[in-house]
Computed example of a mutant assay.
Amino acid sequence: MRGIAGASISAPGPFEPQANTYYNVTPLDGLTPEQAESYLQEYNQWMLQILNIHEAIPGHYSQLLYANQSPSLVRSILANGAMIEGWAVYAERMMLEQGYGDYEPELWLMYWKWNLRVIANTLLDYGVHVQGMSEAQAMALLTEEAFQQQQEAAEKWRRVTLSQVQLTSYYAGFREIYDLRQAIKSSLGSQFDLKAFHHQFLSYGSAPVGQIRRLMMAPVAAQAAATSKSQ
């Protein structure tokens, strides 16, 4: 169950939606005192708040809860990884934009470090699996350019050697979701409602963001055209 991530969510599937959701945190029992200290320096009190938004509320826990309520079993069972990870990353920024943490500069600083991690994940995955990036090059990218602690970087190297593509899904999904929100907000202007956007977006289950965009933009375009015609 430990897998290759420090924290994760084990959510029930659509055939048992009322089952428990488990928030998994990998213990540090396999690390030396020096490795444990390095790891905990990475996950300080500010970073942990962002991690909790990502994994729990309104990140993975909320999104997967909504997915189980979707009328389409196909969209719930055949989940799109970029949509799932993208939503969790989007939730981090959205929460801080809406005032979580009272705009504390330390929290925003850690958010931007976390955001840099998402981008570095994409570069790392592509670099290793397409361009033949070495371990030394990967560690330099993560520690010197993304400012990660040594233990975090070492764990990420292990993760990228045991997986492929998944590390790219975070930024890819986030970018699509954020751009969709901005496009709808631009079209609707003062009529845009953030809560309504979230409810509608999550109602489609874990479908690819491109398909969700098509479904959400069609009525927005029609509304904008009707408003323009009436004017």
Rank of each mutant, 00 (worst) to 15 (best):
Q45H: 13
A138Y: 07
S38N: 12
W108G: 07
E106P: 00
Y103I: 01
M217Y: 05
M133N: 06
R175A: 12
F192T: 03
L28V: 11
Q49R: 11
S228N: 06
A218V: 00
A138H: 05
P71H: 07
W157D: 06
S70I: 01
L28Q: 04
S228C: 01
Y22E: 00
T32E: 00
L48D: 06
I4Q: 12
R93P: 00
K113Q: 15
G99Q: 12
M216R: 10
G205P: 09
T143F: 11
M217C: 12
T161L: 15
E97I: 07
G13V: 00
A172M: 13
L162M: 08
N115C: 05
I119P: 00
S62Q: 03
G86F: 00
L48F: 06
S62W: 01
Y170M: 13
Q149T: 15
A91I: 03
V89K: 03
A221H: 05
L124I: 02
P12E: 07
R175D: 01
W157Y: 08
G86V: 02
R117I: 02
Y66A: 14
S206W: 04
L51R: 14
A207V: 07
T26W: 08
S203F: 09
T168R: 06
E152D: 15
G189V: 05
G3H: 02
R214H: 13
Q45E: 15
F192K: 04
Q148H: 14
N44S: 14
A5M: 01
Q131F: 12
P58M: 07
N44A: 15
G173P: 10
Q41R: 15
L31N: 03
P208D: 13
A56Y: 09
Q231K: 12
A138F: 06
A56M: 09
Y100R: 13
Q63I: 00
Q63A: 06
Q223V: 04
E135T: 09
M139R: 12
Y171N: 12
E42Y: 13
L96A: 01
L107C: 14
M216P: 04
L51T: 15
Y22A: 05
T21E: 05
A120P: 12
T168C: 09
E85I: 01
A222T: 07
S163I: 00
Q137A: 14
P105E: 10
Q98P: 02
V220A: 06
L64E: 02
Y204Q: 10
S187D: 05
W87I: 02
R175I: 01
V74Q: 09
S8F: 05
Q137Y: 05
L124F: 01
W87K: 00
K156L: 12
A224T: 10
N121Y: 14
E34V: 10
Q41C: 15
M216Q: 00
